[in-house]
Amino acid sequence: MSFDHKNETLSITVQPGEGDKAALNDMKSLSGGERSFSTVCFILSLWSITESPFRCLDEFDVYMDMVNRRISMDMMLKMADSQRHRQFILLTPQSMSSLPTSRLIRILRMQDPERGQTTLNFQNRHQEQEDD
């Protein structure tokens, strides 16, 4: 990371390959999965130095392959285990069935949305309430 205090900017460069084989790249040149993984790493480093009762991420793994998703999940679970006084909320359309069973982990799965739906059924719900 490169801080420019005068212009109040932060530039992030990453090395997605192995050792000296890959040149340093800015975030714009990365694939979606590489960018998502780099962002998770950056957010985890911020979480280790900031105070907040909640840690939330939304769709952090959408562009990741399964290997990097597993690595990211493992890093987040390790951080959550070390910060038990905080609540971690991770929103993802991906399956969470591979998470370990624990009394500290709760998975809430929403129903899949209806595909091809053009209107919401608010009128029917209102009618059902009037019938009661």
Rank of each mutant, 00 (worst) to 15 (best):
S2F: 10
F3Y: 11
D4G: 03
D4N: 13
H5E: 15
E8C: 06
E8F: 08
T9N: 10
L10C: 11
L10A: 12
T13I: 04
P16E: 03
E18W: 07
G19N: 09
K21V: 07
A22T: 15
A22C: 15
A23S: 09
A23L: 10
N25G: 06
N25S: 15
D26T: 10
D26N: 04
K28E: 11
L30M: 13
L30S: 00
S31Y: 00
G33H: 06
R35C: 05
S36L: 01
F37M: 10
S38F: 05
S38R: 05
V40F: 14
C41F: 06
F42T: 13
I43Y: 09
L46D: 07
W47N: 12
W47T: 05
S48A: 12
S48D: 15
T50Y: 04
S52Q: 12
S52N: 08
F54R: 05
C56M: 08
C56A: 11
C56S: 00
C56Q: 02
D61I: 07
Y63P: 03
D65N: 06
D65W: 06
D65P: 01
V67T: 14
N68C: 02
N68K: 09
R69V: 10
I71L: 05
S72W: 00
S72E: 02
D74R: 15
K78V: 13
K78L: 08
K78C: 04
A80Q: 01
D81S: 06
D81F: 01
F88W: 08
F88D: 07
I89Y: 09
L90A: 02
L91K: 09
P93N: 04
S98G: 15
L99F: 05
P100Y: 02
L104W: 05
L104F: 15
L104V: 11
R106H: 07
M110S: 12
Q111L: 15
Q111G: 08
D112A: 12
P113V: 07
E114I: 15
R115K: 12
Q117S: 08
L120Y: 01
N121E: 08
N121I: 01
Q123A: 06
Q127K: 09
E128T: 09
E130S: 05
D131W: 07
D131C: 03
